[in-house]
Computed example of a mutant assay.
Amino acid sequence: MEEINTVRLYGAGGHAQIIHSVLKQNRVAVTEIFDDNPSGCHPKFKHISILEIDKDFSQEGDPFIIAIGDNFQRSEIAKFLQSEFATAIHSSAIIDPDIKIGKGTVVYAGAVIQPNTTIGKHVIINTLASVDHDNVIEDFVHISPNTTLCGLVHVGEGSHIGAGAVVVPKIKIGKWCIIGAGTVVIRDIPDYAVVVGNPGKIIKMNYPEESKK
């Protein structure tokens, strides 16, 4: 994977402080931090000058990591930023060399990613998450802490898998789904579904506004 020495962050909240910690541990310097609301930044960044994106903003410079936990917001910012993107991987993560990881993705402490897995762009693999063999995780997904994805699982674009959820083998989860914390997924899940419980049940459909018209 390409080595980097300096990055820029977009976002200065709680999620950003974890990414900042991973980068610091990897001896990668953060040269600039941008946020739409600098006054609301995490206390960790109070001593740092937080910049706003304005008309004079230059896309040129160090690669970005979008330090925003919300999947939809992260996807919208990625459309705006035409810069290069970097990845951040904690040294304690166990990652098989036979995987693919897209630009902008972050992998946190203790995560395990097994062989022949493909992870898209701007994905979050959070603390102690387990991603088994032959998984496909599409762009802008968030795999929360202590989640277990068994083998041959496919997670669609923008879906959020809640903390401690378990997905059994050979399951396909659609795009922009929300899988609640602690949910056990034992059957395929359609696009935009919100699923909770053990076994997981669909409690509502979270369609985007344009699909309701």
Rank of each mutant, 00 (worst) to 15 (best):
E2L: 14
T6S: 14
Y10M: 14
Y10G: 13
G11H: 12
A12Y: 14
A12P: 07
G14N: 09
H15L: 05
Q17C: 13
H20N: 14
V22P: 02
V22N: 09
V22S: 02
V22G: 06
K24Y: 14
K24N: 13
V28L: 04
I33A: 01
F34L: 08
D35C: 10
N37H: 09
G40H: 14
P43W: 13
K46P: 01
H47G: 12
I48S: 07
I48Q: 11
S49T: 14
E52K: 15
D54M: 13
E60F: 08
D62L: 02
D62V: 00
P63H: 02
P63L: 05
F64Y: 04
G69V: 10
N71I: 07
R74W: 12
E76L: 03
L81S: 12
L81T: 12
T87H: 02
A88N: 09
A93F: 10
I94Q: 04
I94G: 06
I95Y: 01
I95P: 09
P97W: 02
I99K: 05
G102N: 13
G102D: 14
K103F: 15
K103I: 08
G104V: 00
T105R: 11
A109E: 09
G110L: 09
V112Y: 13
K121D: 12
I124D: 04
I125H: 06
T127A: 08
L128N: 09
D132Y: 01
N135T: 00
N135K: 00
I137K: 08
H142Y: 00
I143V: 10
S144H: 04
T147F: 07
L149P: 01
C150W: 02
C150V: 10
L152V: 14
V153M: 12
V155S: 08
G156L: 03
G158K: 09
G158Y: 03
S159N: 03
I161P: 00
G162A: 05
V168Q: 02
I171A: 07
K172W: 01
G174L: 01
K175C: 13
I178C: 03
I178P: 00
I179L: 11
T183K: 01
D188A: 06
P190D: 03
D191M: 10
Y192K: 12
V194R: 00
V195N: 03
N198Y: 10
P199Y: 05
P199F: 11
P199G: 15
I203E: 06
I203V: 11
I203L: 06
K204I: 06
N206S: 13
E209D: 12
